[in-house]
Amino acid sequence: MLAVGVLILLMGAALLELRLDALGYRPTALDSRQRWQHERARAAALGKDALILVGASRFQLGLDLDVLRRETGLEPVQLALDGSAGEPVLAGLANDPRVRGTILFDYYDHAIGMRGGVAEEMEQAYGRGVSRIDLWRHPAALIEGALTTWMHERLRAYADGADPLTSLHRRALPAVPARQYLTTQPDRSRLADYTLVDMPEFYYRRVARTLGETIDVRSPHAESDLAHRVGRLVPAEDTGLVDAARRVGDDVARIHARGGRVIFVAMPSSGMVREIEMRRYPRERFWTRFLTEVGATGIHAAQENALVGYACPDGSHLDLRERGSFTRSLAAILRQRGLIPSGS
């Protein structure tokens, strides 16, 4: 009886896979905790050869690791975490004497001084030795993680972090064609295809989120409403900036002292998102002061001729068609300024 049940279940699962395939869904990599821990361990193990990317979604979506590898001769390690601040990760790297590589830090004005969150959790878990001696201390957890990832990355029912119930209920039964605008790569980068999202609603939603407000994005007045709200913005308080920058500066100094390098990169933004950033965080009061206090090099996409032409369809992130070209331009700047270790 149970064998018949198993057989019927396998047939059902296969049918769901076929249905999802017909609707255009493809298996995706999982941006799991374990994968991050693995990359974090690589950042340390690679020593001077590592090009470590720390930050949030702008790095995950905007930088092409294959291009970086080719153009810099270094081995890129993607440690950016969607929706998080990079400082806890930078602090962890500074505390790890084995980290001696080049670090690109995704500078985002509003995230400066932010601690805690998923980045802090990840770094603390790594600090507790989760990945260094895991195989010895918790072999089952490690192997199970690898097995689960292997399985889920090959089945459409788990695409984009969904579960079979969600896939059945929200995708297969209502026959919703695939609109996987965001695809996670095994190297933890993410490809964003903005031709698959509803515009301009998607863009309005991003602007509203950057503002920290909610609006009806389907309203015919959405754009003017948002523009009005953006127009009223005043510069943010900068009272904590110096302290936060000094803390970051301490971390940077420790990395520099052992031969590593930290470069701050402000990624492109467009439209009203850029307008919000400029109004809230005037560059002289934030970006320039931050770099001065930290004593590190920075590359701002809005100040570099080679980087200014890139537009973000949602106002905040690059489309997959632009990321390769953008990464090449960024790598060229790094090379021209001698920011990449010689001989690499």
Partner: peptide, 18 residues
Amino acid sequence: QLAMAISCLAAMYLFSGG
């Protein structure tokens, strides 16, 4: 019995992945 077995297995599959 068969219906129960299939229901249990199907539910486990559908709720897997979390």
